[in-house]
């Protein structure tokens, strides 16, 4: 099976998260506020070089940047 999202370089994980996000946004207001909190990710990481911690980056932002890079290179 050929999927449109696959052709544009997205992973199945990304596809699911986009689909879930839009489902959450379509809820009635009271349910939406509770549900949208589940979509947030605050995971951070830092690269350590020579025993020193580099700057903290958000995993979500870094993933998005990597996806754009891989899409443009392919």
């Amino acid at each position: 099976m050929a999927f449109a999202w696959k052709a544009s370089g997205l992973t199945y994980n990304k596809y699911l998260s986009v689909a879930a996000r839009v489902v959450r946004r379509s809820l009635k207001d009271d349910k939406r506020l509770a549900a949208e909190r589940r979509g947030e990710m605050e995971l951070r990481f830092a690269k350590w070089t020579n025993g020193k911690q580099g700057d903290m980056k958000s995993v979500a932002d870094a993933n998005a940047a990597a996806a754009v890079e891989s899409a443009s290179s392919s």
Partner: peptide, 8 residues
Amino acid sequence: QDIAEAKI
């Protein structure tokens, strides 16, 4: 990527 996400 934005267009692909919007299509989904």
